[in-house]
Design a protein around this nucleic acid. Structure first.
Length: 420
DNA sequence: TCTGGGGTCCTAGGGCGA
DNA sequence: TCTGTCGCCCTAGGACCC
C-alpha cells in the first residue's frame, strides 16, 4: 500500500496564471482578504525573498522594484478551480482524501514502482491539460512520508519532474535526513523550537527519539507522527466529513468604534453562517461571537472578548441567528475601543431534519420555507440581494481588493472570449 | 495608515455525581 | 453526615494545518 500526496504548485498563483499566461516566469503574489499579507507566491516571488504571510505594506517597495504582479485573493475562482482538479483526481483514484483546497491524498494498492511512476506522470499531464494547473506528486508508504516526498518533488523540479517516490529504505532515510525538523508536517513553531533546543534538527533525528519521551513532550499527536515517519502507517485516509464548526469572520478596512457599525457587520456574519449551515443541511445549537481590537497597534488600548451562547433551540434561520448574534454582541461590546475584527462561529451542529423540538422554546417553523425562498432568490440574483434590516443596507462595506482578477469561471460576465 | 480566514484535534483543569 | 476519590463531561486555550 502506498500513499500519494498530490499538491498544486503555488495554487492561487497558478489559478491566476491559467487565465493570464503572460504571467508565467514573472514574480506573482496573491494577497489575503483586505490585501493584508501574501498568501501565495510564485517561485520567482519566493526567490525575491518574499516570505509567506509578508505584510503587503511592508513589501510595497519590493513589489514595485521587481515588478511583482500583485493580486487580491479571488476565492470564488480558486474554489472552482480546486473542484475541477479534485474531480480529475477522484476519477483517477477513488480512494481519495481532499485534504485542503490544493492538496489530496490518494491511496493505492498493488501497484509496482514502475506502474506508480507511469500513473503519476499520466495524472500530472492530465490535470495540466484539463485545468492548466501544474501539480507535484509525492509517493511513500505513509502520509507523513508522502508529504516529504512531495516536498522533494516540488523543490527539485528539474531532477524529479515534479514526481518523487520513496520506495526503498535507503531513499526514505536520505529524505528524512534532508528534511529540516521545522518542515515536517505536524511540527509547528512551538515543537520546532523545543526539538532544536534538544539537538533535533532534521526528521531523521526525530525518528530516533523514544516513544515515551515523544508521547510525554508532544502528546499523542507527536507520537502518531513519529510512527508515521518511521514508515508505520498510523495516519489514515479521512473521509470527507461535514464541518463541525462554521465561521464567518472578517477584519475591517477601518477601525470601528460604534456599536451600530459592529451590529451591521455581525448581523451579516450570522446571516452568512446561517446560509452555510443550510447548504450543509444542518442547524447549530451554540454560537460564539467575538470582537477585538488591532493587536498590532501597541499605541491603542486593547480589548478582546468572545461570548458563547447556547441557543434555546437548534436553528439555521438567518433571522434567528442574526437576532442571537446581536444579543451576544451587545453583551460584550465596550465603547471607547477601535475594533478591527469580529466574527461569528456556529458550533454543536445537528442535522436540520432531526431538529430536537422542545416543549416551549422552538424556532419559528415559518422560517424554513422563508429561508429556502431566500436561498433561491440569492442564488439566482447573486450574493445577498435580500438582506435583513439589521444588515447594512444604507452603507456598503468593502474589503480592500485593489487587484482583484475577474471571475473567469464563476461570473458569467467575466468569462473570457477567445478571438480567432 | 496598512499584518487573512477557516478549520481540526488535543489537553488541562474544574464541576459534579456516584 | 462528612470527606476522599474516581471518572465523566465540559470548557478554554493552545498547537497545528492550508
Amino acid at each position: 500500500m502506498m500513499y500519494a500526496l498530490v499538491d498544486c504548485n503555488n495554487f492561487y498563483v497558478s489559478c491566476e496564471r491559467v487565465f493570464r499566461p503572460d504571467l508565467n516566469g514573472q514574480p506573482v503574489v496573491v494577497l489575503s482578504n483586505n490585501d493584508g499579507c501574501a498568501i501565495a507566491r510564485s517561485n520567482e516571488a519566493k526567490a525575491l525573498g518574499i516570505p509567506m504571510g509578508a505584510p503587503a505594506f511592508e513589501y510595497e517597495e519590493v513589489f514595485t522594484k521587481n515588478n511583482v504582479k500583485v493580486f487580491s485573493a479571488n476565492f470564488a475562482l480558486y474554489g472552482d478551480m480546486s473542484q475541477r482538479v479534485m474531480s480529475i483526481l477522484s476519477e483517477f483514484c477513488p480512494d481519495i482524501e481532499v485534504y485542503s483546497i490544493d492538496e489530496a491524498f490518494l491511496k493505492t494498492e498493488g501497484l509496482s514502482t514502475e506502474q506508480l511512476i507511469e500513473h503519476g506522470q499520466i495524472l500530472r499531464k492530465r490535470v495540466l491539460k484539463c485545468t492548466g494547473i501544474p501539480i507535484s506528486i509525492g509517493i511513500a508508504p505513509t502520509k507523513a512520508l508522502a508529504k516529504i516526498a512531495n516536498r522533494i518533488a516540488k523543490k527539485f523540479p528539474k531532477e524529479t519532474n515534479n514526481f518523487h517516490i520513496l520506495d526503498s529504505e535507503v531513499k526514505i532515510q536520505k529524505a528524512l535526513k534532508w528534511t529540516k525538523i521545522g518542515d515536517v508536517w505536524g511540527i509547528g513553531s512551538a515543537n520546532e523550537k523545543f526539538l532544536k533546543a534538544i539537538g533535533i534538527h532534521n526528521a531523521h533525528a526525530f525518528t530516533q527519539l523514544n516513544d515515551a519521551f515523544v508521547r510525554k513532550q508532544m502528546t499523542i499527536v507527536g507520537l502518531r507522527l513519529l510512527h508515521d515517519l518511521r514508515g508505520i502507517p498510523t495516519l489514515t485516509l479521512d473521509d470527507i466529513k461535514d464541518k463541525k464548526n462554521i465561521a464567518t469572520t472578517r477584519s475591517f478596512e477601518d477601525n470601528l468604534t460604534e456599536l451600530n457599525d459592529l451590529e451591521e457587520r455581525v448581523s451579516t456574519f450570522a446571516v452568512s453562517c446561517a446560509e452555510k449551515l443550510r447548504k450543509q443541511k444542518d442547524c447549530c445549537n451554540t454560537m460564539m461571537v467575538f470582537i477585538h481590537t488591532n493587536g498590532f497597534r501597541k499605541d491603542l488600548p486593547q480589548y478582546s472578548k468572545n461570548i458563547v451562547l447556547k441557543l434555546p433551540f437548534p436553528s439555521n434561520s438567518a433571522i434567528e441567528l442574526s437576532r442571537f448574534a446581536l444579543e451576544a454582541l451587545r453583551k460584550i461590546f465596550k465603547p471607547g475601543y477601535h475594533y478591527k475584527k469580529a466574527g461569528v462561529i456556529v458550533m454543536d451542529l445537528c442535522p436540520q431534519s432531526q431538529g430536537q423540538y422542545k416543549l416551549f422554546d422552538n424556532g419559528d417553523p415559518r422560517h424554513l420555507p422563508l429561508m429556502e425562498a431566500l436561498d433561491k432568490v440569492n442564488a439566482s440574483f447573486g450574493q445577498q440581494k435580500i438582506r435583513l434590516a439589521s444588515q447594512a443596507h444604507g452603507r456598503v462595506w468593502r474589503m480592500r481588493q485593489e487587484n482583484l482578477s475577474p471571475g473567469y469561471t464563476t461570473k458569467l460576465s467575466d468569462i473570457i472570449t477567445v478571438k480567432s
